[in-house]
């Protein structure tokens, strides 16, 4: 028997007449649309659509990778040592760090001067959190909420990252500069 390589026609005459089936479909979508609209007019929540950015979902999973947090040491200074591991591992190249030196504190001589994340490029992969050896960067479940018309204005500066949801419980604790032990001869 000769093998057939084409599909059998699945539509009957009624479907192929086209216009009646289209009207039937419009009735379904229109019914849902007007139903939702009626609920909206009478101040009830209609469809599941969220009106972003005016309306933000409250039910993000606690594991959601959202906006970054820079943790602080107990004295309020930034925990980050500016090692650039996050900036290096970042697949979107969206972290930029400028460092300063403070040789008075031998346990924390290097710290970021400017730590900036470009939210127009961030892909929320969480690699920066994984790469960080200091527990200095975390991700909260909240979304960045930075909609705008200019991507050059979507940089989150260090101040914002540290203080929008301050966290002062880093897992890695440093001795303070005063308790530092310089060379001690036995």
């Amino acid at each position: 028997m000769k093998k057939e390589y084409w599909n059998k026609p699945t539509m009957g005459l009624w479907e192929r007449l086209y216009i009646f089936e289209v009207i039937r479909g419009l009735c379904i979508t229109g019914g849902v649309f007007f139903g939702n609209m009626w609920k909206w007019i009478t101040f009830r929540k209609g469809a599941l659509t969220a009106y972003y950015p005016e309306e933000i979902r409250s039910d993000y999973s606690p594991n959601n990778r959202g906006r970054h947090i820079l943790t602080q040491r107990p004295n309020g200074e930034v925990q980050c040592v500016s090692c650039n591991m996050c900036a290096t591992v970042c697949p979107a190249y969206c972290i930029e760090i400028q460092s300063t030196a403070n040789f008075e504190d031998p346990f924390h001589p290097k710290a970021p001067d400017r730590f900036e994340i470009d939210y127009s490029r961030c892909i929320f992969c969480g690699f920066c959190v994984e790469a960080c050896p200091e527990d200095a960067i975390r991700m909260s479940k909240d979304v960045p909420n930075l909609p705008g018309f200019d991507r050059t204005k979507m940089w989150a500066p260090q101040d914002l990252l540290m203080n929008w949801q301050p966290q002062r419980n880093p897992a890695k604790v440093y001795p303070s500069a005063q308790t530092s032990t310089q060379e001690v001869h036995p």
Partner: peptide, 17 residues
């Protein structure tokens, strides 16, 4: 064993023992 971390050998060079 801890030693002195930032020694200025000169205006140009810092030594970390």
């Amino acid at each position: 064993h801890h030693k002195k971390k930032f020694n200025y050998l000169s205006e140009r060079i810092v030594l970390d023992n």
